[in-house]
């Protein structure tokens, strides 16, 4: 691990790729703020999708079991589509709030990245003494 972040394979449940953020030797305040924010957002994303995807699998299995009890051993695509619609409708509010929350967090990361870049640029210009 040199001086860049490294990206891992996608998580089997949340499908998101974990990132090990590189910590420089002399980390400035802006860099630290950005790194912590990115860790926080990644954790938040991972938690949301883990619980959501687990719930999906669980409810789908329950639905299949329910159909099996009614005497349908393997559900066809049309029967499954009823579950897909139902699951989507039930989670409308969840996705809506998550969506806009994510937009906000994503924008705040970019803002911090911008700050870091400006800070780095200023540090770089300080190298040249006129």
């Amino acid at each position: 691990m040199n001086n860049v972040d490294s990206v891992g394979p996608p998580d089997p449940v949340s499908n998101l790729r974990p990132i090990k953020y590189h910590k420089p030797k002399h980390e400035s305040l802006v860099e630290r703020k950005l790194r912590l924010k990115r860790i926080e957002v990644a954790k938040w994303n991972h938690e949301f999708w883990s619980s959501h995807n687990l719930r999906f699998v669980k409810e789908r299995d329950a639905y299949k079991k329910c159909l099996a009890d009614k005497g349908i051993p393997t559900a066809n695509a049309d029967q499954m589509s009823e579950f897909y619609k139902d699951f989507l409708d039930r989670n409308w509010k969840t996705h809506l709030t998550y969506n806009f929350e994510w937009y906000k967090k994503n924008i705040s990361i970019v803002r911090l990245m911008m700050n870091t870049n400006i800070y780095k640029a200023i540090q770089w210009t300080k190298k040249f003494k006129f």
Partner: peptide
Amino acid sequence: SRAGYRMMSVTNP
């Protein structure tokens, strides 16, 4: 359905 996309194919086949 899982990712929350309200596409016509899911919500109104």
